[in-house]
């Protein structure tokens, strides 16, 4: 797969900022993108994951503060009548939809030698505290600070995809 993680993270970060601003009316106040050496990273209130490509996969993980995902959920479903008993399921669906939209849009920037790049359906993880990595993969992290709380974006992939 012809994608380097640094370029992917830059594209996802740029598109996340514009998605939050244009679609959700949420301002991103700061971003901190870096390659981290820790083997374990902390997750927030709600987390959604997609994988890109066939093996070796890149995992893209969005993890939200409660306040931020609440605000996104409210904006994303504003034209729908959501019953109280549907809120939890639909909030998780929102988290899945958002990572799918942003990453799906971001991979349009990459030419994969004439091959379409597959994207997995999203998986949503609640109540998890952290993710740990093996020695063969690395973490690229962007910690975003917004007007409604924080979110983290992780790109996780094999070492060879981190070469610039």
């Amino acid at each position: 797969m012809n994608i380097k993680i640094k370029s992917l993270m830059d594209s996802i970060s740029r598109r996340t900022e514009s998605f939050l601003k244009d679609e959700m009316n949420i301002q991103v106040n700061g971003q901190d993108i870096k390659l981290v050496e820790e083997s374990r990273l902390e997750l927030k209130h709600l987390t959604s994951v997609v994988t890109i490509g066939t093996a070796p996969h890149i995992f893209v993980i969005f993890s939200y503060d409660k306040e931020l995902i609440n605000k996104i959920f409210e904006a994303y479903t504003k034209e729908l009548e959501i019953l109280p008993e549907e809120c939890l399921e639909y909030m998780e669906e929102t988290a899945g939809d958002v990572v799918n939209i942003i990453v799906g849009n971001a991979i349009s920037e990459f030419d994969n030698d004439g091959q379409a790049i597959n994207l997995s359906p999203p998986i949503v993880i609640a109540q998890a505290q952290s993710i740990a990595k093996s020695r063969t993969v690395r973490f690229f992290v962007n910690r975003l600070s917004t007007s409604c709380g924080h979110m983290s974006i992780f790109c996780v992939g094999p070492n060879e995809l981190f070469e610039v």
């Binding site: 990453v103 349009s108 091959q115 379409a116 994207l119």
Partner: peptide, 12 residues
């Protein structure tokens, strides 16, 4: 109707 904007996916 998809988030997937890659040119090759449109062709496919």
């Amino acid at each position: 109707v998809t988030s997937h904007g890659q040119e090759q996916m449109v062709v496919d």
